[in-house]
C-alpha cells in the first residue's frame, strides 16, 4: 500500500467523518498522559480527500493531540487512489491487532466489509486474517448488532445483556427493546431471569391483546420499577411475582391458598409440608426434623394435630 509520512495541520483533519471509525472507546485521558510523557509512538493513518484529511485509524490519538494543544501531527497519509476496501482493512487491522475488538467493534467492522463480498461465507474466509470471527453463522449474528438502537448496544457493551438477548431485544419495536435494555441494565439480571421476564411480557401481551409497550407503561409495573424504597433484588422479585400472577392467575391463586392453609396448620420449625409440583400429582411431602426420641415424640403429637386440623382437609380436598 502506497503511503508517505507527512506532518499535517490538525485543523485540516475532519474528526467527524466516521467512515472508518471502529473503536467504541471515547475516553482519551490515559492516551493524553501517555503522549504527553513519551510522545506519539504510532502516527495515525489519514486519507486525503479534497483539501481535507479523513481518519482511517487513530481517532483517539488525534483527539488526544488536539487536547494537548498540538497544531500539527506526524501522520501516515495513504495514497488517495487506494481502494476503499483496503482502507477498511487497514482501519480494522490497526485496531484488532492491538487488542481484542468488542462485539460492537466487530459488528462495525463486518458491516463495513460485507458490501465487498458476495455472501457471509466469502466474508468469513477473509475475516480471520483481520482478527475477526470467521464462522458465517456467528458473522450473521454479529452484523445485526450494527443496526441495534444505541441503548441496546451500550447494554451489550457493558455486559448487561448477552448477544442473544440484545438481538432478541432488537426484534422488538425500538421503544420496547430500548426499555427492556434499560430495565435489564438497571436490575443487573442474569440471562435466565431476563429471558423469563421478556417471555412473560410477550405472552401476557399476546394473551390479553395489548401491546408490550402498553404493558410496560401500566401503573402496577411502573410502581415497582420506580419505587425508590426497593433495592434491585427486591424489584426483581416483585416484578417476577407480578408477572407470574398475571400470566398464571389460577396457579398463583392456588399457591396462595396453599400457603394460607399451611399457615393455619401452625407447623413448627421442625416440620415442612411440600405440595406436589404445580399441584399436578396428588402426592404431598411432609418433612419432619428431630434430633432425638423426645423431639420425635413431639413431632408425632404435632402430626396428630395437623391431621385433625380442618386446613389439612382443605389442602387435600
Amino acid at each position: 500500500m502506497r503511503s508517505r509520512e507527512k506532518t499535517v495541520p490538525l485543523s485540516r483533519i475532519n474528526p467527524d467523518d466516521n467512515t472508518f471509525h471502529i473503536t467504541t472507546k471515547t475516553c482519551i485521558n490515559s492516551l493524553v498522559n501517555s503522549i504527553q510523557n513519551v510522545g506519539l509512538i504510532t502516527p495515525p493513518i489519514l486519507l486525503e480527500k479534497s483539501s481535507k484529511f479523513i481518519i482511517v485509524s487513530g481517532f483517539r490519538r488525534i483527539a488526544a493531540c488536539k487536547q494537548l494543544g498540538w497544531q500539527n501531527i506526524l501522520s501516515r497519509v495513504i495514497d488517495s487512489g487506494i481502494k476503499r476496501l483496503e482502507c477498511i482493512k487497514l482501519a480494522i487491522a490497526d485496531n484488532s491487532f492491538q487488542r481484542q475488538l468488542n462485539l460492537i467493534e466487530q459488528s462495525r467492522s463486518l458491516y463495513m466489509l460485507s458490501p465487498f463480498y458476495k455472501d457471509d461465507i466469502a466474508l468469513g474466509k477473509e475475516t480471520s486474517s483481520l482478527g475477526l470471527p470467521e464462522n458465517p453463522s456467528f458473522i450473521i449474528k454479529i452484523k445485526k448488532i450494527y443496526h441495534l438502537p444505541q441503548t441496546i448496544q451500550n447494554s451489550l457493551l457493558s455486559n448487561n445483556v448477552s448477544l442473544d438477548m440484545a438481538l432478541e431485544l432488537g426484534r422488538l419495536e425500538e421503544d420496547v427493546g430500548v426499555k427492556f435494555a434499560d430495565l435489564f441494565s438497571k436490575l443487573k439480571l442474569s440471562l435466565n431471569k431476563q429471558m423469563e421476564i421478556l417471555t412473560m411480557f410477550k405472552e401476557i401481551a399476546f394473551r390479553e391483546d395489548i401491546s408490550i409497550f402498553e404493558l410496560l407503561k401500566e401503573s402496577c409495573f411502573q410502581g415497582i420499577v420506580n419505587n425508590d424504597d426497593l433495592d434491585r433484588n427486591q424489584k426483581t422479585q416483585k416484578i417476577r411475582s407480578y408477572l407470574k400472577q398475571r400470566r398464571y392467575p389460577a396457579l398463583t391463586k392456588a399457591e396462595k391458598e396453599f400457603k394460607k392453609h399451611v399457615s393455619n396448620l401452625k407447623l413448627g420449625a421442625g416440620a415442612k409440608l411440600i405440595p406436589p409440583n404445580n399441584f399436578e400429582s396428588t402426592v404431598y411431602t411432609l418433612c419432619l426434623q428431630f434430633k432425638n426420641l423426645i423431639e420425635l415424640k413431639e413431632r408425632k403429637a404435632e402430626l396428630d394435630k395437623i391431621i385433625k386440623n380442618p386446613s389439612m382437609k382443605k389442602i387435600l380436598r
Binding site: 399476546f206 404445580n278 399441584f279 399436578e280
Partner: peptide
C-alpha cells in the same frame, strides 16, 4: 395462534398441560 399461551404447567410426563383445576 394463542393455544400455547394458556395456563400450562409441566405435567408428570414432561408434557405441558393446563393447570389441573382448569
Amino acid at each position: 395462534s394463542k393455544i400455547i399461551y394458556g395456563e400450562f404447567i409441566s405435567g408428570l410426563d414432561g408434557k405441558m398441560r393446563y393447570f389441573k383445576p382448569m
